[in-house]
Design a protein around this nucleic acid. Structure first.
Lengths: 138, 138
DNA sequence: GTCTATGCAAAGTTTTTGCACCTGG
DNA sequence: CCAGGTGCAAAAACTTTGCATAGAC
C-alpha cells in the first residue's frame, strides 16, 4: 500500500494529511506490526518531536479509515498492522510466550461453521489463540 | 465446586484459608464471570472492607492453584471464572459489542488440526473470537 | 508466637484529555 | 485565514508495591 492511498483515504474522510500521519503510517508499514510505543520509537527516527498522544490519535484515525487494524496477541497492549498485511493466526504459548504464526486457512472449518449456524462473520486473527506449545507440554 | 475444595486446595499449596479468599471465590462462583472490579463489588456485599488489591492478589492465588481461570473477551480487563465453569467460545461483535456464547466443540476441527500439525495444545476459550454478528453485517 | 495475608496509601503504567499554538488547505 | 491537528502537561484509569498490623495455624 503506497502513500498515495494514505493521502487519498485521509482526504476522502475529511482528514488532513500531516507529516505525523505519514510517519505513523510508515512506521506501521516498516515494522509489520507494533505497539503504540514501538510505533512511536520507529516514527521518531524520522520526526523526533512526535508525541505518544499523536500516535494514539493517529492510529485511531488510520484504523477508522480502514488502512490499519489491530490485534491482541497477549495480555498487554494491542499491536497494529496494515489492513492488507499478510494475515495469520497467532498461537501464543502461555508458558514460554513464544508466538507461532500459522495460516488463517487452518481456521476455515470454524469460520464457516460460525457463519452457517450463527450468521457470525469471524475476524479470526483479531485475537491470538492461547495454549501450550509442543515443548512446554511435558 | 464447593468451599471444601477451596480450603483443601489452598492448604495443599501452603496458602492460608482466609475470609477474603472465600469471599473472592464465592463472588467468582456467583457471578459466573467478572472483572476485578465486578468481583470486588460482589464480594463487598459480604465483607465491606475488602480491598481491591486483595482481589488482585487472591485471583492470582486462586488461578495459580487451578480453581479459577481468566479469559479476554474484549479490549479491557480480563474476566475471571471458575476453572470448572461451563466452557464456551465467546463471539464478540466489534460493532454492537454483543457477546454470543457457543459450544467449544464448534472449534474441534481447528483444535485437532493445530494439535496434529503443530503439536500445539489449544486453550480455545482463553481469547474471545471477534467479528460481526448477523445484525451488524448489513 | 510465627509468619502469611490484609488494608491502606503511594507509586508505577498505560491511555486519555484540555488547551494554547501550529499548520494544511 | 480558519478549522483541524499537534505537543505538552495534567488527569484519569488501571495495576502493583511497601509497610505496619491483623489474623491463620
Amino acid at each position: 500500500m503506497s502513500l498515495d492511498v494514505l493521502e487519498d483515504r485521509l482526504r476522502e474522510h475529511g482528514y488532513r494529511v500531516t507529516t505525523q500521519r505519514r510517519a505513523v503510517f510508515d512506521a506501521v508499514s516498516a515494522l509489520g506490526h507494533g505497539t503504540h510505543e514501538e510505533i512511536l520509537r520507529h516514527a521518531q527516527t524520522v520526526d523526533a518531536s512526535l508525541n505518544l498522544s499523536t500516535v494514539y490519535r493517529n492510529l485511531e484515525v488510520l484504523e477508522e479509515i480502514g488502512l490499519v487494524r489491530h490485534a491482541h496477541l497477549g495480555h498487554g497492549s494491542p499491536t497494529y498492522h496494515l489492513a492488507d498485511h499478510h494475515r495469520h493466526l497467532h498461537l501464543v504459548c502461555s508458558k514460554c510466550k513464544e508466538v507461532l504464526e500459522v495460516s488463517v486457512d487452518t481456521a476455515n472449518p470454524l469460520v464457516e461453521e460460525l457463519k452457517t449456524s450463527h450468521g457470525f462473520a469471524v475476524d479470526i486473527d483479531h485475537f491470538a489463540i492461547q495454549g501450550l506449545c509442543s515443548k512446554c507440554q511435558s
